[in-house]
Computed example of a mutant assay.
Amino acid sequence: MTTFQRYFHTIITEGGVEAQRDGAATIEACHLLLAVAAQEGTAPQRLLAEAGLDHQGVRAALQREFEHSLNSVGVSTAAFTMPRPSPALKRPSGMGASGRQVLDRIFTGNRKKDLRPMHVLIAILRAEVGKVPRALDLTGVDRAGLLARAVEDVTNTTE
C-alpha cells in the first residue's frame, strides 16, 4: 500500500467518524476537512495549522458557518441553546454530494501514482460553493492563498 493509499484510507475512515459524531447520514467535505486537520504531522495538517485551522479551528469555523446560515434566515442562536447533535448509531460509509465532489477532484486529471496526501486538501479547497468555502471565508482564511500553497507543495514534492 502506498503512502497516499494509507493516508486516503485514514481520511475516509476518520471522515466517517466525524460524520458519525455530527449525527450525519453521509460523509461530506466538511468531515473530510476535519479528518485532514486531525492527521498530526502530515503536510496537509501542517499547512492548515499554519493558517490557524487545527482540528479545533476547523470545527469552530464550521460552527460559525452554521450559526451564520441560521442567522441569514432569521434564526438567532443567541436566543436559545442549541442541543448538541446526537451521534449516529453507526458510522456512515457513504459519501454525500460534497464528499463525492472531493473524490472526483482528487482522481480527475491526476495519475494515481502521482497522488500525494496534499491532493486531498487541494480537492477540498477547490470547492467554490458549499459549507467548507463559506466556513473558511467567514473565518477570514485566504482560501486562494492556502490553495496556492498546497499546489506549490505538491509541485515541489517528490515521493
Rank of each mutant, 00 (worst) to 15 (best):
C30E: 14
S93K: 12
A61W: 04
E50M: 03
H68F: 11
V151M: 13
A127F: 02
S98N: 08
D153F: 14
L32N: 04
V129R: 15
P92I: 06
T108W: 09
E128C: 05
F80K: 08
T3Q: 13
H31E: 06
F80W: 07
I124F: 04
A51T: 08
T26R: 07
Q45K: 08
R126I: 01
R46C: 00
G15P: 11
L62Q: 08
V73G: 06
A49G: 02
L121N: 05
E18Q: 15
F80Q: 14
S76K: 07
D104E: 11
G130M: 04
I12L: 13
M95Q: 12
D114K: 14
F66G: 05
V151L: 15
R134C: 01
A79M: 05
T108K: 07
L47R: 10
T10N: 11
Q5P: 00
R149N: 06
R21I: 15
A148I: 10
L47G: 07
V132I: 07
F4Q: 05
V36D: 01
H119M: 05
C30L: 14
A123V: 09
F8C: 03
A78F: 01
A78T: 10
E159Y: 12
A148V: 01
V120Y: 02
T42D: 01
G130F: 04
S86N: 04
F80I: 11
